[in-house]
């Protein structure tokens, strides 16, 4: 591995000073589970690594029934899924973060890092899109908030400008008759990168029969994670049925433009979008109806 400078700023001000230095290639480190691997592989070349784990703004984890969930950018996955309130309120988020790598990785890996790494196959991004989450970006000059679906711009690329960092992610509060679910397809049963991922968030009417609101996010079928806006919108006001869900799944499938690579052929990925969208929607509906849908943290044994 090449030599680089490693900094651990304690304040945002210090961080911006370090980031802003001219002729210094900087990368921000949260959990490091992608960054360190890329450095070791020689895929990245940097002069300075800035570890933002010690910034208080990045460490917050607040689950509030009115404000929603505030997820500091450097909060590791295990802190999230060990928080019972979050597990109960945002099971769709848990579906995704509890399958990122193995338990050792989850002790370090962060949702903020997953976003900033901006991989098309990132597991946490489709469900953040489905929940309607926003990114809190802070820079030396100005701060901004943007929807997660607008954050990634290409494989490994995002809208962060030089001198900006992602500080936190905000998930809106969830009403009573809502539910969310994320699932991915991998050839094995653990320890893989998503061949396709699909996350769905639904709000149903009080009887649990009609869709009031639906948002669907997809992974690994385009250069960035996708927000399948039309697929969700066409369910609004429609009855929960195999037919309506099929129509939404077909709509989601139509926007997928996957590539063929070592993980799967494009045609197969396209096929899976429909299957997974359907399954993600049913998982979300079942949760909205108060039924139990297991994940890596909440399973039938409990």
């Amino acid at each position: 591995m090449q030599n680089f400078e490693y900094c651990t700023p304690r304040t945002l001000g210090e961080t911006f000073d370090l980031l802003g230095e001219n002729d210094c290639q900087c990368r921000v480190l949260a959990g490091g589970t992608d960054l360190i691997v890329q450095l070791r592989q020689g895929a990245l070349s940097v002069d300075r690594v800035i570890d933002i784990k010690h910034l208080p703004e990045c460490k917050q984890l607040i689950c509030d029934p009115i404000e929603g969930l505030t997820l500091g950018a450097t909060v590791p996955c295990h802190r999230i899924y060990e928080d019972k309130a979050i597990v109960d309120t945002y099971p769709g988020l848990i579906d995704s973060i509890a399958i990122i790598g193995g338990i050792q990785i989850q002790g370090r890996a962060t949702v903020g890092g997953n976003l900033c790494n901006s991989s098309p196959s990132a597991d946490s991004i489709p469900i953040l899109i489905a929940y309607g989450a926003t990114c809190e970006i802070v820079g030396a000059a100005e701060n901004r908030r943007i929807p997660v679906e607008n954050f990634c711009t290409g494989p490994g690329k995002n809208i962060l400008e030089k001198g900006e960092i992602l500080v936190a992610i905000h998930l809106p509060p969830v009403p009573k008759s809502s539910g969310a679910h994320y699932l991915r397809f991998i050839p094995r049963f653990e320890m893989d990168i998503a061949v396709v991922g699909a996350g769905a968030y639904v709000e149903l009417d009080d009887e649990g029969r009609m869709f009031n609101k639906v948002r669907i996010g997809l992974a690994a079928v385009a250069p960035t994670p996708l927000y399948a806006r039309e697929a969700g919108d066409l369910l609004k006001g429609r009855e929960v049925s195999d037919e309506s869900i099929d129509a939404a799944a077909s709509s989601a499938q139509s926007i997928a433009r996957p590539i063929s690579d070592m993980r799967a052929p494009a045609e197969y990925r396209k096929h899976l979008v429909k299957v997974l969208t359907r399954r993600a929607l049913w998982g979300a509906i079942n949760r909205a109806r108060g039924e139990f849908v297991p994940n890596a943290v909440q399973n039938n044994d409990q």
Binding site: P187, R188, F189, E190, M191, D192, M262, R263
Partner: peptide, 16 residues
């Protein structure tokens, strides 16, 4: 070779 790592060269795990 495109998959020269244990991530993408998929030997069975204990879950498989």
């Amino acid at each position: 070779m495109q998959n020269a790592s244990f991530l993408d060269y998929r030997i069975p795990t204990c879950f498989d």
